[in-house]
């Protein structure tokens, strides 16, 4: 177990405390690794090297093993997230119906490439394989809102609405 004093030596931030709280709820069984990482990803938004170290101590496995698992799955991010996350679906149905043109338009309007965050850290842009709403293709998810039957013309208004 790691105590709070030890954790504060690493980095006494709110984020670290959140991670500690999450770890408290899990035993040190190795199969808890992915659920723990998922909860950190969900609540803190990314996995920093410090968080990886905390998890490795908790489960008594090497940090490189934790890192190995984390990098295998696309869900885990290693940099601080932007305020809003845009997921453009490029599943088969969305591809056939022009999903890559939607993605290109986001890239152009936000001046980022897929997988990056905009300079003001307002938006991060990523592609996903399939969101399972294929009958409404092309589909985009921004934060928790799903936009079906997307069209390039709708992108600008949606972005400015979110910017407020």
């Amino acid at each position: 177990m790691i105590n709070m004093a030890e954790a504060s030596q690493i980095l006494a931030s709110d984020e670290t405390i959140k991670v500690m709280e999450i770890l408290k709820r899990y035993s040190s069984d190795k199969d808890n690794l992915i659920p723990i990482l998922q909860e950190i990803q969900k609540n803190v938004g990314y996995l920093s090297p410090d968080f990886v170290r905390l998890v490795s101590k908790h489960l008594k496995i090497s940090a490189s093993s934790v890192y190995g698992v984390a990098t295998f799955y696309t869900m885990f991010k290693f940099a601080k997230p932007a305020k809003h996350n845009i997921k453009v679906c490029l599943g088969t149905s969305c591809h056939v119906k022009g999903g890559d043109r939607i993605l290109e338009t986001f890239e152009r309007l936000l001046e980022v490439r897929c997988g990056e965050s905009s300079r003001d850290l307002m938006f991060s842009l990523e592609r996903v394989a399939c969101l399972g709403s294929c009958a409404l293709a092309p589909v985009v998810v921004i934060d928790d809102t799903i936009y079906g039957n997307m069209h390039v013309d709708r992108i600008k208004p949606i972005l400015s609405k979110i910017r407020g």
Partner: peptide, 11 residues
Amino acid sequence: EGDPGAFMNRA
């Protein structure tokens, strides 16, 4: 259900 273009299991 990872196949892009399939959503039967989700539904």
